[in-house]
Design a protein around this nucleic acid. Sequence first.
DNA 1: GTCTATATTACGATAGAC
DNA 2: GTCTATCGTAATATAGAC
Lengths: 217, 217
Amino acid sequence: MTDDPKSGGATDLTHENDKPRTRIQKVNRKKILDAALEVFSAQGFRGATLDQIAAEAGLSKPNVLYYFPSKEAIHAALLAGLLDIWLAPLRAMDPQGEPRDEIMSYMRRKLEMSREMPRESRLFANEVLQGAPRIGDGLSTDLKALVDDKAAVIRDWIAQGKLAPVDPHHLIFSIWALTQHYADFDVQVRAVLGPDTDPFDGAGKFLDMLFTRLLTP
Amino acid sequence: MTDDPKSGGATDLTHENDKPRTRIQKVNRKKILDAALEVFSAQGFRGATLDQIAAEAGLSKPNVLYYFPSKEAIHAALLAGLLDIWLAPLRAMDPQGEPRDEIMSYMRRKLEMSREMPRESRLFANEVLQGAPRIGDGLSTDLKALVDDKAAVIRDWIAQGKLAPVDPHHLIFSIWALTQHYADFDVQVRAVLGPDTDPFDGAGKFLDMLFTRLLTP
DNA sequence: GTCTATATTACGATAGAC
DNA sequence: GTCTATCGTAATATAGAC
């Protein structure tokens, strides 16, 4: 890995720029957060142990706690940026754009995130499924505000006859449900399809057809 | 929520008739399983504690372990019947019936289960989300067999021009995803819709429209 | 910064009185 | 059948040497 302080891919939840850090601090924090994402997303918060995270990160347990004050803090650091990353594609929906293109693009981008970032999806699913104890406020403030905003946009589009009349909120829920399902229920989907079928290939075609039919006036 | 020993209808996972038991055994086993469903579905297996289950059941912890040999055994008892209950509506899909009616009825019954049995839905979601460590085999055997069977039925219907051409497996996945979302992500849905809107009313209308449009040739 | 050793609690499960 | 008391373990977190 080359020096590259400004780097940070799509999956970067590390907030490495929040505070000044030495190089080794950045590297180790990143190792820990990646390991924690692996373990928390697969086991949930309570199911995960610091031993597992330390092993996955290739560090000793006390060393992990040298970089983060507690298990809770590691989890919080992961969740902190997640909602923003998760909602970026919805935020990008352009009121000036062509309605069906905008919605189809959103859906496709969301499905792509399920394929590329299944651990993040499952981390989020674990949190919400258990009542969102550590992210709950963000749902009824930030999330609700954004969704209400975009729902109003969709409502306008419908009023202008550019979309079939559908409930905007439930339209958005349906995109979440259908795309995240392929990340969150991955084992079930693969168990049903068998080992030789890629779930996302079929999902892409199916969801294209579904939303085309749903949205065409 | 924990009392009411005489109740017990659609949600009965207790298998009370498996072995002969005295009346008090039946009552207490049922209390424990209901409490365990409450706690496991909200916290996941590892997040749940016997203390919580015992408190919810109104029994002491050792008394809980008098009726079940271990925490694991309580969880297993809950999961044992769950897959069957969960798939009963799909099993009921009739190859002789009118295709769109059959699929619409399946979807509606599944949405109704999300409304009436959200805890069971979340218990299942927790299990699958974490890789189905305790139910995995059932997915690639029983579940796959049933879904493949019904997928063949749907394929026939399509070949006869009675349905729009859609991938049968992904059609079934879409029903699961869209209906279970309202149980599994309940807190999120309610946070977005606000306290005065019933998610399931809107969901029923929306999903009726969605699947009607999808399935009409 | 990193480690070994350890303090401390929480939890699953058992013993044994009643 | 039910309870109090308790054992043993595993998990979070800290102390302190290097």
